[in-house]
Design a protein around this nucleic acid. Structure first.
Lengths: 149, 149
DNA sequence: CTGTTTTTGATGCAATTGCATCGAGATTGA
DNA sequence: TCAATCTCGATGCAATTGCATCAAAAACAG
């Protein structure tokens, strides 16, 4: 015999609802800023930033996938689009013909840089302005608990 | 002359990254549970729940849109799909021929209920298990600051 | 009133995402 | 060694989302 699962606590349900809302609202606002400045979406930015941080500006698709929580098939096609725009370049992976390395181009680096000026300003406006440094730290710590395991 | 915008504080950048990650990870886990139990996505659930709470199980599309942060065109088509499955019904809005009321059906109510047993259990597993009641309250309070304005 | 503007919901079309599966190349295990 | 399995990335096709715009009805302004 199995009991029905206990109702989640009201505090948890409220936190969960706000997590979804806060994420959507802030992402929406930031995406709107990027778009109105003529830039592509945050996904593009994420790929560019990960690559820039990687050794020699290179990562395998799998690494990008994990870092940015992409689906394999979505990333594959996103990289197609980015390659078409000259932001990244696919190069062979030495010693394994299945794999490949994605390398950020100079153009890609430049775009990441230009996007950051808008993105950073948006973060300031939509997040820094609403939280003290201490509160931001508390928020990070709480969210980390959710991510772990 | 305009200064470049100051870099957002590291604490804020970290919190922002975690907000995105936490949301995606938890949504992903919960959606996976729902799907593997044969249920539709959280969007459907959100619509059903809002309707169930509304007076007589009825709301206008605009009200659902605002409550669930839907785009107008997405909601319009989501309601098409839900109506096709017999979960909701469109009825005329008395005194305004532009508007309409969306009414949840008995089938819709039943689905919301069955989904909740899986959804609630998932919330327990993925959130309640990770946060104390007090922490959930702190998280809500911090996220509220982000949402406001 | 009556012409203009606003609100509400729908829809054609393009872009993106999700799902299933594929082919090529590595890796494993008897 | 070599057949079976697994990993990596791509892709056909369906579903969903985003964008622009529309038509109808209501609200508004003179």
């Amino acid at each position: 015999m199995q009991e029905p699962p206990p109702e989640p606590p009201a505090s948890v349900i409220r936190a969960w609802g706000r997590l979804i809302r806060a994420e959507r609202i802030v992402v929406g606002r930031i995406e709107a800023e990027l778009k109105s400045a003529g830039f592509p979406s945050l996904h593009w930015y994420d790929v560019l930033l990960e690559l820039k941080r990687g050794p020699e500006g290179r990562l395998t698709p799998r690494e990008i996938e994990e870092a940015g929580l992409f689906e394999q098939y979505n990333l594959s096609r996103l990289l197609d689009r980015m390659e078409n725009k000259g932001l990244v370049r696919r190069i062979p992976f030495p010693g394994d013909k299945r794999r490949q390395l994605i390398e950020i181009t100079e153009e890609g680096k430049a775009l990441q840089w230009r996007m950051w000026s808008v993105y950073g300003a948006a973060i300031n406006r939509f997040i820094s302005a609403k939280l003290t440094d201490k509160e931001a730290g508390q928020l990070s710590a709480l969210l980390l608990k959710l991510i772990q395991e």
